[in-house]
Simulated scan of single mutants.
Amino acid sequence: MINFEGKRKGMGEKEEKEVMELALQAGHLLLENGAEIFRVEETMDRICRHYGVRSGNAFVLSNGIFATAGSERERYFAKVQHIPVSGTHLNRVAAVNQLSREIESGRYTVEEASQALEDIRNMPGKRKITQVLASGVGSAAFCYLFGGNMGDTLCALCAGLVLYLYVLFVSAPRLSKIVGNIGGGALVTFICSGFYLLGAGAHLNFMIIGSIMPLIPGVAFTNAIRDIADGDYISGSVRMLDALLVFFSIAIGVGMAFSFISRVTGGALL
Protein backbone atom coordinates (compact mmCIF):
# COMPACT_ATOMS: atom_id res chain seq x y z
CA MET A 1 0.00 0.00 0.00
CA ILE A 2 1.38 3.42 -0.92
CA ASN A 3 0.22 6.96 -0.34
CA PHE A 4 1.02 9.80 -2.73
CA GLU A 5 1.65 13.29 -1.39
CA GLY A 6 1.86 15.93 -4.10
CA LYS A 7 3.26 19.43 -4.12
CA ARG A 8 0.85 21.45 -6.19
CA LYS A 9 -2.47 22.86 -5.10
CA GLY A 10 -5.67 23.64 -6.85
CA MET A 11 -5.75 20.84 -9.39
CA GLY A 12 -9.02 20.47 -11.21
CA GLU A 13 -11.04 17.27 -11.31
CA LYS A 14 -10.10 16.59 -14.92
CA GLU A 15 -6.38 17.14 -14.36
CA GLU A 16 -6.29 14.95 -11.29
CA LYS A 17 -8.13 12.17 -13.10
CA GLU A 18 -5.67 12.37 -16.00
CA VAL A 19 -2.71 12.10 -13.63
CA MET A 20 -4.20 9.09 -11.84
CA GLU A 21 -4.99 7.44 -15.16
CA LEU A 22 -1.40 8.06 -16.28
CA ALA A 23 0.02 6.57 -13.08
CA LEU A 24 -2.32 3.60 -13.32
CA GLN A 25 -1.38 2.89 -16.92
CA ALA A 26 2.32 3.12 -16.09
CA GLY A 27 1.82 0.67 -13.23
CA HIS A 28 -0.20 -1.63 -15.50
CA LEU A 29 2.52 -1.63 -18.14
CA LEU A 30 5.21 -2.42 -15.58
CA LEU A 31 3.28 -5.16 -13.84
CA GLU A 32 2.21 -7.01 -16.99
CA ASN A 33 5.81 -7.05 -18.21
CA GLY A 34 7.32 -8.59 -15.09
CA ALA A 35 8.33 -5.67 -12.85
CA GLU A 36 8.59 -6.07 -9.09
CA ILE A 37 5.85 -4.69 -6.83
CA PHE A 38 8.12 -2.05 -5.29
CA ARG A 39 9.07 -0.77 -8.77
CA VAL A 40 5.40 -0.38 -9.71
CA GLU A 41 4.71 1.53 -6.50
CA GLU A 42 7.77 3.73 -6.90
CA THR A 43 6.89 4.66 -10.49
CA MET A 44 3.29 5.55 -9.62
CA ASP A 45 4.59 7.56 -6.69
CA ARG A 46 7.01 9.54 -8.90
CA ILE A 47 4.29 10.40 -11.43
CA CYS A 48 1.71 11.48 -8.86
CA ARG A 49 4.16 13.53 -6.82
CA HIS A 50 5.45 15.39 -9.85
CA TYR A 51 2.04 16.32 -11.25
CA GLY A 52 0.75 17.38 -7.85
CA VAL A 53 -1.87 14.85 -6.82
CA ARG A 54 -2.26 15.72 -3.16
CA SER A 55 -3.86 12.50 -2.02
CA GLY A 56 -4.04 9.05 -3.48
CA ASN A 57 -3.62 5.41 -2.64
CA ALA A 58 -2.62 2.37 -4.62
CA PHE A 59 -2.74 -1.26 -3.59
CA VAL A 60 -0.62 -3.35 -5.95
CA LEU A 61 -0.81 -7.12 -6.30
CA SER A 62 0.91 -9.38 -8.78
CA ASN A 63 -2.20 -9.47 -10.97
CA GLY A 64 -4.01 -6.24 -10.19
CA ILE A 65 -3.85 -2.60 -9.14
CA PHE A 66 -6.39 -0.79 -6.95
CA ALA A 67 -5.96 2.99 -7.21
CA THR A 68 -7.92 5.72 -5.42
CA ALA A 69 -7.55 9.45 -4.78
CA GLY A 70 -9.54 12.09 -2.97
CA SER A 71 -10.02 13.91 0.32
CA GLU A 72 -12.22 16.62 1.80
CA ARG A 73 -10.53 19.08 -0.59
CA GLU A 74 -10.39 16.94 -3.74
CA ARG A 75 -12.68 14.99 -6.00
CA TYR A 76 -12.67 11.24 -5.67
CA PHE A 77 -11.13 8.79 -8.10
CA ALA A 78 -11.24 5.01 -7.90
CA LYS A 79 -10.30 2.36 -10.40
CA VAL A 80 -9.33 -1.31 -10.43
CA GLN A 81 -7.35 -2.99 -13.20
CA HIS A 82 -6.91 -6.73 -13.51
CA ILE A 83 -3.51 -7.69 -14.91
CA PRO A 84 -3.07 -11.40 -15.68
CA VAL A 85 0.24 -13.05 -14.82
CA SER A 86 2.09 -13.15 -18.14
CA GLY A 87 5.56 -13.11 -19.65
CA THR A 88 8.50 -10.84 -18.98
CA HIS A 89 9.59 -7.98 -21.25
CA LEU A 90 12.38 -6.18 -19.44
CA ASN A 91 12.95 -3.67 -22.24
CA ARG A 92 9.49 -2.22 -21.59
CA VAL A 93 10.08 -2.23 -17.85
CA ALA A 94 13.32 -0.30 -18.34
CA ALA A 95 11.61 2.15 -20.71
CA VAL A 96 8.78 2.93 -18.26
CA ASN A 97 11.28 3.23 -15.43
CA GLN A 98 13.29 5.77 -17.44
CA LEU A 99 10.13 7.63 -18.45
CA SER A 100 9.12 8.09 -14.80
CA ARG A 101 12.46 9.74 -14.07
CA GLU A 102 12.15 12.00 -17.10
CA ILE A 103 8.64 12.95 -15.98
CA GLU A 104 10.02 13.84 -12.56
CA SER A 105 12.64 16.07 -14.18
CA GLY A 106 9.84 18.05 -15.89
CA ARG A 107 10.34 16.94 -19.48
CA TYR A 108 6.73 15.83 -20.14
CA THR A 109 3.23 17.18 -19.80
CA VAL A 110 0.51 14.69 -18.84
CA GLU A 111 -0.56 14.36 -22.48
CA GLU A 112 2.99 13.83 -23.69
CA ALA A 113 3.64 11.25 -20.98
CA SER A 114 0.47 9.38 -21.96
CA GLN A 115 1.64 9.26 -25.57
CA ALA A 116 5.10 8.09 -24.47
CA LEU A 117 3.48 5.27 -22.49
CA GLU A 118 1.46 4.25 -25.53
CA ASP A 119 4.64 4.20 -27.60
CA ILE A 120 6.27 1.94 -25.01
CA ARG A 121 3.24 -0.36 -25.02
CA ASN A 122 3.60 -0.70 -28.79
CA MET A 123 7.33 -1.34 -28.71
CA PRO A 124 8.09 -4.33 -30.95
CA GLY A 125 9.40 -7.41 -29.23
CA LYS A 126 12.47 -9.31 -30.28
CA ARG A 127 12.24 -10.88 -33.72
CA LYS A 128 11.38 -14.55 -33.71
CA ILE A 129 14.64 -15.51 -35.39
CA THR A 130 16.52 -13.65 -32.65
CA GLN A 131 14.60 -15.48 -29.93
CA VAL A 132 15.24 -18.85 -31.57
CA LEU A 133 18.96 -18.18 -31.94
CA ALA A 134 19.19 -16.89 -28.37
CA SER A 135 17.50 -20.05 -27.13
CA GLY A 136 19.97 -22.25 -29.00
CA VAL A 137 23.04 -20.33 -27.86
CA GLY A 138 21.76 -20.17 -24.30
CA SER A 139 21.09 -23.90 -24.20
CA ALA A 140 24.56 -24.65 -25.54
CA ALA A 141 26.21 -22.27 -23.07
CA PHE A 142 24.40 -23.75 -20.06
CA CYS A 143 25.21 -27.29 -21.20
CA TYR A 144 28.90 -26.37 -21.40
CA LEU A 145 28.83 -24.61 -18.01
CA PHE A 146 27.26 -27.65 -16.36
CA GLY A 147 30.10 -29.85 -17.62
CA GLY A 148 29.14 -31.02 -21.10
CA ASN A 149 31.76 -31.59 -23.77
CA MET A 150 31.73 -30.13 -27.27
CA GLY A 151 29.46 -32.84 -28.63
CA ASP A 152 26.97 -32.31 -25.80
CA THR A 153 27.06 -28.57 -26.40
CA LEU A 154 26.26 -28.92 -30.10
CA CYS A 155 23.39 -31.28 -29.31
CA ALA A 156 22.01 -28.81 -26.74
CA LEU A 157 22.31 -26.05 -29.36
CA CYS A 158 20.13 -27.99 -31.78
CA ALA A 159 17.64 -28.93 -29.06
CA GLY A 160 17.39 -25.30 -27.92
CA LEU A 161 16.68 -24.11 -31.47
CA VAL A 162 13.92 -26.67 -31.98
CA LEU A 163 12.50 -25.99 -28.52
CA TYR A 164 11.93 -22.31 -29.16
CA LEU A 165 10.40 -22.97 -32.56
CA TYR A 166 7.92 -25.12 -30.64
CA VAL A 167 7.39 -22.38 -28.04
CA LEU A 168 6.77 -19.64 -30.62
CA PHE A 169 4.59 -21.54 -33.09
CA VAL A 170 2.87 -24.23 -31.02
CA SER A 171 2.98 -23.68 -27.27
CA ALA A 172 2.44 -19.92 -26.90
CA PRO A 173 -0.40 -19.46 -29.44
CA ARG A 174 -2.26 -22.75 -28.97
CA LEU A 175 -1.56 -24.39 -25.59
CA SER A 176 -2.05 -23.54 -21.94
CA LYS A 177 0.99 -22.83 -19.80
CA ILE A 178 0.87 -26.25 -18.12
CA VAL A 179 0.41 -28.28 -21.30
CA GLY A 180 2.93 -26.17 -23.20
CA ASN A 181 5.67 -26.66 -20.63
CA ILE A 182 4.98 -30.38 -20.32
CA GLY A 183 5.30 -30.61 -24.08
CA GLY A 184 8.49 -28.53 -24.07
CA GLY A 185 10.12 -30.73 -21.44
CA ALA A 186 9.16 -33.86 -23.33
CA LEU A 187 10.36 -32.46 -26.68
CA VAL A 188 13.79 -31.59 -25.31
CA THR A 189 14.13 -35.02 -23.73
CA PHE A 190 13.22 -36.80 -26.97
CA ILE A 191 15.70 -34.73 -29.00
CA CYS A 192 18.58 -35.10 -26.55
CA SER A 193 17.88 -38.80 -26.05
CA GLY A 194 17.93 -39.29 -29.81
CA PHE A 195 21.33 -37.61 -30.08
CA TYR A 196 22.60 -39.67 -27.15
CA LEU A 197 21.46 -42.98 -28.65
CA LEU A 198 23.10 -42.01 -31.95
CA GLY A 199 26.35 -41.32 -30.15
CA ALA A 200 26.41 -37.58 -30.88
CA GLY A 201 26.51 -36.68 -27.18
CA ALA A 202 28.17 -38.35 -24.22
CA HIS A 203 26.33 -36.86 -21.23
CA LEU A 204 22.56 -36.99 -21.53
CA ASN A 205 21.95 -35.21 -18.23
CA PHE A 206 23.98 -32.12 -19.21
CA MET A 207 22.34 -31.99 -22.62
CA ILE A 208 18.81 -32.03 -21.18
CA ILE A 209 19.55 -29.59 -18.35
CA GLY A 210 21.10 -27.10 -20.73
CA SER A 211 18.32 -27.44 -23.29
CA ILE A 212 15.43 -26.83 -20.90
CA MET A 213 16.93 -23.58 -19.56
CA PRO A 214 14.97 -21.37 -22.04
CA LEU A 215 11.78 -22.63 -20.38
CA ILE A 216 12.87 -21.76 -16.83
CA PRO A 217 11.09 -18.61 -15.45
CA GLY A 218 14.17 -17.24 -13.74
CA VAL A 219 13.04 -13.60 -13.65
CA ALA A 220 9.62 -14.50 -12.22
CA PHE A 221 11.18 -16.70 -9.55
CA THR A 222 13.70 -14.00 -8.58
CA ASN A 223 11.00 -11.32 -8.44
CA ALA A 224 8.89 -13.58 -6.24
CA ILE A 225 11.72 -13.85 -3.73
CA ARG A 226 12.28 -10.07 -3.86
CA ASP A 227 8.58 -9.37 -3.30
CA ILE A 228 8.49 -11.70 -0.29
CA ALA A 229 11.66 -10.09 1.08
CA ASP A 230 10.03 -6.65 0.69
CA GLY A 231 6.97 -7.80 2.65
CA ASP A 232 4.64 -8.21 -0.36
CA TYR A 233 3.72 -11.73 0.70
CA ILE A 234 0.56 -12.14 -1.38
CA SER A 235 2.17 -11.02 -4.63
CA GLY A 236 5.37 -12.93 -3.92
CA SER A 237 3.43 -16.11 -3.17
CA VAL A 238 1.40 -15.83 -6.38
CA ARG A 239 4.52 -15.37 -8.48
CA MET A 240 6.32 -18.15 -6.65
CA LEU A 241 3.40 -20.52 -7.24
CA ASP A 242 3.33 -19.58 -10.93
CA ALA A 243 7.08 -20.27 -11.27
CA LEU A 244 6.83 -23.56 -9.37
CA LEU A 245 3.99 -24.63 -11.63
CA VAL A 246 6.29 -24.17 -14.61
CA PHE A 247 9.06 -26.13 -12.90
CA PHE A 248 6.74 -29.03 -12.12
CA SER A 249 5.29 -29.02 -15.64
CA ILE A 250 8.76 -29.25 -17.19
CA ALA A 251 9.70 -32.06 -14.79
CA ILE A 252 6.52 -33.97 -15.70
CA GLY A 253 7.31 -33.63 -19.41
CA VAL A 254 10.88 -34.88 -18.93
CA GLY A 255 9.69 -37.79 -16.79
CA MET A 256 7.01 -38.82 -19.27
CA ALA A 257 9.49 -38.77 -22.15
CA PHE A 258 12.05 -40.80 -20.19
CA SER A 259 9.41 -43.36 -19.29
CA PHE A 260 8.31 -43.74 -22.91
CA ILE A 261 11.86 -43.98 -24.29
CA SER A 262 12.89 -46.50 -21.64
CA ARG A 263 9.98 -48.77 -22.55
CA VAL A 264 10.70 -48.49 -26.27
CA THR A 265 14.46 -49.04 -25.96
CA GLY A 266 14.29 -51.56 -23.14
CA GLY A 267 16.17 -49.29 -20.73
CA ALA A 268 19.02 -48.36 -23.07
CA LEU A 269 19.24 -44.88 -21.53
CA LEU A 270 19.83 -46.19 -18.01
Results as ranks from 00 to 15, higher is better:
residue 200 A to K: 06
residue 133 L to Y: 07
residue 152 D to N: 05
residue 22 L to H: 01
residue 249 S to P: 06
residue 256 M to W: 05
residue 162 V to L: 15
residue 111 E to Q: 15
residue 159 A to F: 00
residue 154 L to D: 09
residue 154 L to P: 01
residue 113 A to S: 11
residue 120 I to H: 10
residue 234 I to W: 05
residue 230 D to V: 08
residue 11 M to T: 09
residue 12 G to I: 11
residue 208 I to E: 00
residue 82 H to D: 13
residue 118 E to A: 09
residue 159 A to R: 00
residue 268 A to D: 08
residue 112 E to P: 08
residue 76 Y to D: 14
residue 10 G to S: 13
residue 194 G to M: 02
residue 141 A to L: 12
residue 220 A to Q: 06
residue 231 G to Y: 00
residue 164 Y to K: 03
residue 107 R to W: 11
residue 51 Y to M: 09
residue 74 E to K: 07
residue 22 L to V: 14
residue 24 L to W: 09
residue 140 A to Y: 05
residue 165 L to G: 13
residue 263 R to I: 11
residue 131 Q to P: 07
residue 3 N to L: 12
residue 85 V to H: 06
residue 54 R to N: 05
residue 152 D to Y: 01
residue 155 C to M: 01
residue 167 V to P: 07
residue 204 L to Y: 01
residue 162 V to A: 14
residue 117 L to Y: 04
residue 178 I to C: 10
residue 171 S to Q: 13
residue 2 I to R: 02
residue 146 F to H: 01
residue 86 S to M: 14
residue 91 N to E: 15
residue 155 C to E: 02
residue 48 C to P: 02
residue 98 Q to Y: 09
residue 176 S to P: 09
residue 241 L to Q: 03
residue 48 C to W: 01
residue 118 E to H: 14
residue 263 R to P: 03
residue 27 G to L: 00
residue 173 P to E: 12
residue 116 A to G: 08
residue 130 T to P: 05
residue 134 A to K: 09
residue 58 A to K: 00
residue 72 E to V: 11
residue 197 L to C: 04
residue 94 A to R: 11
residue 198 L to Y: 07
residue 43 T to P: 00
residue 205 N to C: 01
residue 247 F to I: 10
residue 71 S to T: 12
residue 183 G to N: 13
residue 260 F to R: 10
residue 253 G to A: 10
residue 94 A to G: 11
residue 226 R to K: 08
residue 129 I to Y: 15
residue 140 A to R: 01
residue 167 V to G: 02
residue 160 G to Y: 00
residue 67 A to L: 02
residue 57 N to K: 06
residue 226 R to H: 12
residue 212 I to R: 00
residue 100 S to F: 04
residue 225 I to G: 13
residue 73 R to H: 13
residue 9 K to P: 08
residue 207 M to A: 04
residue 93 V to Q: 03
residue 218 G to N: 04
residue 233 Y to R: 11
residue 238 V to E: 06
residue 269 L to E: 06
residue 81 Q to A: 14
residue 165 L to K: 05
residue 87 G to K: 11
residue 48 C to I: 02
residue 129 I to K: 12
residue 73 R to A: 13
residue 172 A to M: 14
residue 45 D to W: 06
residue 63 N to I: 11
residue 48 C to A: 13
residue 76 Y to I: 12
residue 32 E to D: 14
residue 66 F to L: 03
residue 116 A to H: 05
residue 112 E to T: 10
residue 154 L to K: 02
residue 85 V to T: 12
residue 94 A to W: 08
residue 116 A to N: 05
residue 149 N to E: 14
residue 257 A to R: 04
residue 193 S to D: 02
residue 168 L to P: 03
residue 162 V to Q: 08
residue 24 L to S: 07
residue 57 N to M: 14
residue 268 A to G: 08
residue 162 V to G: 10
residue 230 D to I: 08
residue 75 R to K: 12
residue 168 L to S: 11
residue 251 A to G: 06
residue 185 G to S: 04
residue 260 F to G: 07
residue 52 G to N: 07
residue 198 L to I: 11
residue 29 L to V: 05
residue 243 A to D: 07
residue 258 F to N: 06
residue 67 A to G: 08
residue 142 F to P: 01
residue 72 E to C: 10
